[in-house]
Write a protein that binds this DNA or RNA. Structure first.
Lengths: 268, 268
DNA sequence: TCAATGGTAATTGTCGACAATATAAAGCAT
DNA sequence: ATGCTTTATATTGTCGACAATTACCATTGA
């Protein structure tokens, strides 16, 4: 049945998957370039506010413009790109206003998620959440906090709770859209180091509330946590804005002349 | 420049623009088919749960598969379509669970919108909102309530408030995504007639709270209003489910054999 | 009679080329 | 010299065709 030899001629073509994410089977080229492009935007490899040229991107990812356009459409629907007909697409600009708007929505939605999670999460899932907290505590003690809170760890915590809410629409809005944008802010503006420990404490309180099935308290704590998180990023954004303003004009060197993105100035 | 004669050979295919919205300039073909397809799905012209065939849809809208696929991607991002790679796209199934999930999110988001609107809406916008309420009152008195509450009027009210919140991300989530799905439920399951008058009263109370800049009260009333609205649709959905179960097997007549959609049974 | 396997047909995913539009530059008139 | 018109280029939008994968159906065997 599951004879490996019968598929001997199709197991080879995969290795040129240069990126770490080895795109599970059944996924299409458009999905792959979607993931790659999103990562590039979120991590700042493609600067915010820059214009995206379809031909150069297509050549960079070694695909035709068809799948690329599909990927860009999906990026647009997640609000990471803004597109105007017959003009082109730009990466969203990271401003104070959009940050405020994003975190306002997150506060309402994640508060609700925490309440629902406290009511509906399974006991095993709560135990897993506690284990995750222990891991985070260990990592913070080892000063690995940067990798976790700036990249994947913190989202992991929020992911668990949102998924624990059981509301698939809520899950989709937060995990597929808002979290990537929030991560984009954190990747590009960083986070104050003392914030990591505070955030960890807040996480612990939320987990406790959920473990005690106290939905009301969980919502309150989560809303407060999101507010604090916003304030941290906002503060960092403002200082960076000022320093950038002071050193205006000097672009910090176009990295390499090879496969790079058509990134003209944000134009305003 | 804008010589019409130069395009004399391509102005003919358009007249089957049977739809009212004549797509403003600067909009592309994909945008037009997106609007048309969304309307067809929301109003039930294409039944929920049915499979969408790209070739037949492309021929129906007289476009190539390229723009059609873009439109379908956008529909997928708004959660009106579900797509699996190499298999196809289906219209979402309208179930009790998705309804509950939708209205849970709406409750949190619209409550927040009402609070923000009470705080930030301009005085003129509030006056306009009052005028709209007067119009609605008149229409309900004339028994035109069905056209308003089942189609455009009720969304109009909610649109105003959400836009009044000033949060563009919130506006996008609600107006571009969730409202269309909510309208789909109302279009396909209707609404009990006495609900219209109750809804109108609730609207009036919300407007009053906003006019008095009482954000807290506005949020409370809006959340209650959304809950009541959900209950109404839920009730109607359940009765329809039962009657459909009673008359199982007899499909209510395939309308016309002309340009119709490949609609096989929901398959479960 | 039912299950499994093979083949066939249809649908989806991808690609390259063409057409239409917007941006930019160049030329001309004032 | 400046402003407007016109031309030219480049980018986006659209189309048709090909390739790959999937689902369906028939045949064969137990």
């Amino acid at each position: 049945m599951n004879d490996i030899l019968s598929t001997i001629d199709v197991i080879d073509p995969v290795p040129e998957q240069t990126d770490k994410a080895v795109a599970e089977v059944g996924s299409t080229v458009a999905d792959r370039v979607f993931d790659q492009l999103r990562r590039a935007i979120v991590e700042g490899e493609i600067p915010a506010g820059s214009k995206l040229s379809e031909p150069v991107l297509a050549e960079r990812f070694s695909v035709s413009r068809g799948p690329l356009r599909e990927a860009m459409r999906r990026l647009e629907s997640t609000n990471l790109l803004e597109r105007r007909a017959n003009v082109g697409a730009r990466v969203v600009a990271l401003s104070n206003e959009t940050l405020l708007e994003l975190y306002q929505v997150r506060e309402a939605l994640e508060g609700m998620a925490a309440r629902l999670a406290a009511e509906q999460m399974s006991d095993e899932a709560i135990e897993d959440l506690k284990d995750l907290m222990d891991d985070h505590r260990r990592d913070v003690a080892r000063d690995y906090w940067q990798t976790y809170f700036q990249q994947e760890g913190d989202p992991d915590f929020h992911y668990r709770i949102v998924i624990g809410s059981g509301n698939r629409r809520l899950i989709r809005i937060l995990c597929d859209d808002l979290y990537h944008l929030a991560r984009m802010y954190r990747c590009q503006f960083g986070m104050k180091s003392e914030r990591a420990r505070d955030a960890l404490k807040e996480h612990a309180l939320i987990v406790d509330a959920i473990a005690e099935r106290d939905g009301e308290l969980a919502e309150l704590l989560m809303r407060r946590h999101v507010r604090a998180s916003r304030r941290s990023v906002e503060q960092r954004l403002q200082t960076d804005r000022l320093t950038a303003l002071a050193a205006a004009g000097g672009k910090p060197a176009r990295s390499r002349p090879g496969p790079r993105i058509d990134a003209d100035k944000p134009k305003r």
